[in-house]
Design a protein around this nucleic acid. Structure first.
Lengths: 177, 177
DNA sequence: ACGTTATACCTCGACACCGATGTATGTTGG
DNA sequence: CCAACATACATCGGTGTCGAGGTATAACGT
């Protein structure tokens, strides 16, 4: 997820680590803050893998900056990760939102639609958080107000997302023809 | 999050690891599966910390079972974790849902309400995923349909959750008087 | 007789992540 | 004049998580 965000932001323009960090904080920081000690090793990993290169520049304000830019492999890898996300990226809302934030970089509308359809399939299979044996329980069947809240909120999210997915898929399919 | 779920399920009744695993899979597995190699060490950690004890029973079907039950410290610790969640548990929906699933174990309505109010405060502060400088962008201002989706879905979730929070807080406060 | 599946638990190595801490520079406020 | 803060990057130890693999028993189908 972090690596995806790094690749995603650098796809638009070269950035140095400090600015990158602020971008990532804006994207996911209110939900799941990213520590510096996570970001810098992640940058090194991607650099070592040949997905990005760094150019040292004298710091505009303070210490020298390492301006990061994607290599051709980095651009390819981002598109690969967007086009073929692991199941976790589809099911976990945090990961999914990060993926959506950069899905436009996957230029092909039918490839974008294929990814959305995977999420659609996930949302359409009947699942709950609470079960009676194998039967998923509905909000109305729960006494616990907190568990009822979980289902109420999840249902509202699911409805909004299904509507958006169907809308967006329709307009993406329209582009093809 | 995993430890909370273990403590939460065991609070109701002693369980052995295999059943516990199925409970956890039902609760969060469709979003974020938990590997066995994560669960068993977690159980050991909690055992070592004196929060649970195990009793070996001949297996009903196959190999012998380790039936786990909470100690008094375990019960206290669960309540502590429910009453004083880290900020991450409040902001990350996955963690928050797991907490809500067991919040009923925190018997005191005003303690429950205090936790809900922390979530309320988080949801009420203006935050977005996308910014222009410091200004949070609204869905309508985005060209990117995928980023617009993120905001649309987040807004629907937020609305549903705010409504539920206010309802539930009202009825919890009613209990007090 | 044998392979498969389900039950039931466990270890190990690899690795991502975090908090604490460190280094260095330039700007701002008292 | 100096502390505080923002910029800018980095390391380190501890720990949680995962995938792969292992052990053992019992039921079921063929």
């Amino acid at each position: 997820m972090l690596e995806l965000a790094i690749l995603g932001f650098l796809y638009d323009a070269p950035l140095h680590g400090y600015v990158l960090r602020r971008h990532i904080a804006a994207l996911t920081g209110h939900v799941r803050p990213v520590a510096e000690s996570t970001l810098y090793p992640a940058i090194k990993r991607l650099e070592k893998a040949g997905l990005l290169v760094r150019a040292t520049e004298p710091g505009a304000v303070a210490a020298p900056r390492h301006v990061l830019s994607l290599t051709e492999e980095g651009r390819t890898e981002l598109k690969r990760r967007l086009a073929e996300p692991a199941q976790r990226e589809i099911t976990d809302e945090n990961h999914w939102f990060a993926l959506l934030a950069f899905l436009r970089h996957l230029a092909d509308p039918s490839a974008q639609a294929a990814v959305l359809r995977r999420r659609l399939a996930f949302l359409e299979e009947p699942a709950s958080f609470f079960y009676e044996g194998d039967r998923p329980l509905r909000a109305e069947e729960l006494d616990d107000p907190f568990r009822r809240g979980v289902l109420t909120i999840a249902r509202a999210t699911s409805r909004a997302e299904l509507a958006w997915l169907r809308d967006t898929l329709a307009s993406l399919d329209g582009v093809d023809r």
